[in-house]
Design a protein around this nucleic acid. Structure first.
Lengths: 110, 110
DNA sequence: TTCATTCATAACCATATGGTTATCTATTTT
DNA sequence: AAAATAGATAACCATATGGTTATGAATGAA
């Protein structure tokens, strides 16, 4: 579980906003340019630009320029870091939760 | 994938700080009181108290009072929400990533 | 009863975040 | 060449975040 802590800060921080999560969700359908990603939200163009910079800084997306369009795609590896952190600890959390649960069930059965 | 968006905001937001992630990691060993959770960090007692309130508001932990001690434990269900969000979309992200990867490998083989 | 410990709360400070409008560059379209 | 489109950047604003010190309440130990 060796991992750059500050990058995890940025990854989770980037995921903590519904607009950015929505953009990532949209990118599950494939690459999109910034206008397309901004369209579903009632925000200004610079606001969308800022959100994408946050996602980019966290390493969650990459950007490919084609003329005046910037095409955005997801970096699954970065998302996986967050997923791994949660998965690693949730083993232990669930385990100890289940232990308490078992104890309560057994006591109820007496 | 119906899920309270603002709670996801809070869950991911709570996970975006290394101190709070450290506290959750420590809780993998079992319940602990606030002093024990604060001990590894060079922060004041009120700072630790604030971090725990953030985790609590996100539903990631629960608190049980015993005399002057507040014992903290993890709520695995809340963590699972974050995990599920990532797991759901990462299918698609990886899938499209693999498709590009295959394409590049095939082209290289020509 | 007095002292120590655990924790919460209030007030404050610096910085980050999420939004805006205005303006600029670069590229495409007409 | 002129107009439209895609984006970036700067300057600004309100609020949130993460930290501090000071203080108070409640419980436990001497």
């Amino acid at each position: 579980m060796v991992m750059n802590e500050s990058q995890l800060d940025q990854i989770f921080g980037a995921l903590s906003d519904a607009t950015r999560r929505g953009m990532l969700a949209q990118l599950a359908l494939g690459e999109a340019n910034i206008s397309a990603l901004a369209a579903p939200y009632d925000i200004s163009q610079p606001a969308a630009s800022k959100h994408l910079r946050v996602l980019e800084r966290a390493g969650l997306i990459h950007r490919r320029r084609e003329g005046r369009d910037h095409y955005i795609g997801v970096n699954p590896a970065a998302v996986e870091r967050a997923q791994n952190w949660i998965a690693y600890y949730s083993q232990f959390w669930k385990q100890q939760f289940d232990a308490v649960d078992d104890f309560l069930k057994k006591r109820k059965g007496e």
